[in-house]
Design a protein around this nucleic acid. Structure first.
Lengths: 226, 226
DNA sequence: TGTTGTAAAGTGTATTTTGCAACTAACTTA
DNA sequence: TAAGTTAGTTGCAAAATACACTTTACAACA
């Protein structure tokens, strides 16, 4: 904490959101075409200035920015890390608190038309992002991959109600692994009591109907032994 | 990232470091007696303003602050999280990038005398810290506890060279568990090839001399299955 | 209406990992 | 040289996990 007088440097303080979802079995990031300089016309993370007068904290900035730019609210969002330095923004020394947001694709359908500026790009094709957004995206994907293995993060990529097959497929995509064993996966879900069944079955496909489940919101991170 | 004109609010941007070590078998945090208002005379985390002109990024701020206030360099340090809001600092809306630093107690001996302003307080006795430093401390301890179980973080609380018994004791303290099984602990260390023996034995105590080891720097985080 | 295709859900078991306890080794002290 | 202390190893039972296979439930269609 400050020991000396507040220095007079004007610092750019922003929040940037990495909005991830699953498109055709692949992780995709929501990018916004920039209207203003710098990098006007390029696709970048969803971000904006922190407004000290109206934002309770940077979490609120992230939520506000997401709401303003997509028109939607209630995303799952958590703080990722903070990026800073003189080079990352051509306007000068800047600091950006980055957030990871996860959403089912279904929520975004209204936002994706021609009219909107939001586009979804597979994460492995999102190259040459402006600022240090490539680095921020890599950190977000890394967080999802590593924390996903011991948390319910990947479930946030699905609607509130889902089948176990959908959940497993989503974990596989989020973790970037080819295949998780079905019985192991379900055994863990039961042991940890992460999910609970809800009324109703899902038909959709040609076979047996699947039981629907939702997250039991209490638990989100579980333990590992040494 | 910014879409609009840079707002004119002057935001306080700081870095705060949670310096943890082990004192008499317990986790302790390094606190600094504040010289200036607000909270002059109280013990607080080691922090300072980000200087956009001389700090490469906030990581550099944290390292600089730690060096300036303790006179020491080369601490293990990693970014923790960022705290912000209008209330946490009485001077106004502020944002603080918090860092977790770990050190062996031995490194601090010169800094702890009467002359120095650094004091070590057991983490469970560090109550009523100024600003939101209590919350930041809790986040740091939480990070060490959770990430410690699948990383070499706890080893950073020891000197570069250590015995396996010391390492195990340190893991137990860092993770806050009463006892880890000796053979399981050593089996894992070997499987993961986290450490390597160095020349020399440690006598110290009344029994058999212990082989000395150091971290193999390549690996710091290891995996778990689902 | 019975056969076939498909996906969900459950079962059995071999294998791996872990936890516990005892044991051997090396050194100090008296 | 006997007793005390800590380091390091080993064997085995119990638990957790991965893999293959079976059963259940539904749709489509001859």
């Amino acid at each position: 904490m400050p020991q000396t007088v507040h220095p007079d440097h004007k610092q750019i303080v922003t929040a940037d959101v990495v909005l991830l979802t699953v498109v055709e079995g692949r992780l995709a990031v929501g990018l916004l075409t920039r209207e203003n300089e710098p990098f006007a016309g390029r696709g970048a993370l969803i971000g904006g200035y922190v407004h000290a007068d109206k934002d309770r904290d940077t979490d609120a900035t992230a939520a506000r920015v997401l709401r303003d730019k997509t028109g939607l609210e209630g995303f799952f969002i958590e703080q990722l890390a903070t990026f800073s330095g003189p080079k990352r923004d051509p306007r000068g020394w800047s600091i950006s608190v980055a957030y990871l947001a996860l959403t089912p694709l279904q929520r975004l359908t209204n936002v994706l038309g021609e009219a909107s500026r939001v586009s979804l790009v597979p994460v492995d094709q999102a190259r040459d992002l402006p600022f240090d957004h490539g680095e921020i995206l890599a950190a977000a994907v890394g967080r999802l991959r590593s924390k996903g293995a011991y948390s319910t993060l990947p479930a946030r990529l699905l609607p509130e109600v889902f089948t176990l097959t959908e959940l497993q497929a989503t974990y596989q995509i989020a973790l970037g692994v080819p295949r998780i064993d079905k019985s192991s996966f379900r055994r863990k879900l039961n042991e940890l009591a992460l999910i609970e069944p809800v009324e109703g079955l899902r038909a959709e496909t040609g076979g047996r109907q699947a039981q629907l489940y939702r997250l039991r919101q209490e638990i989100s991170v579980f333990e590992r032994r040494l």
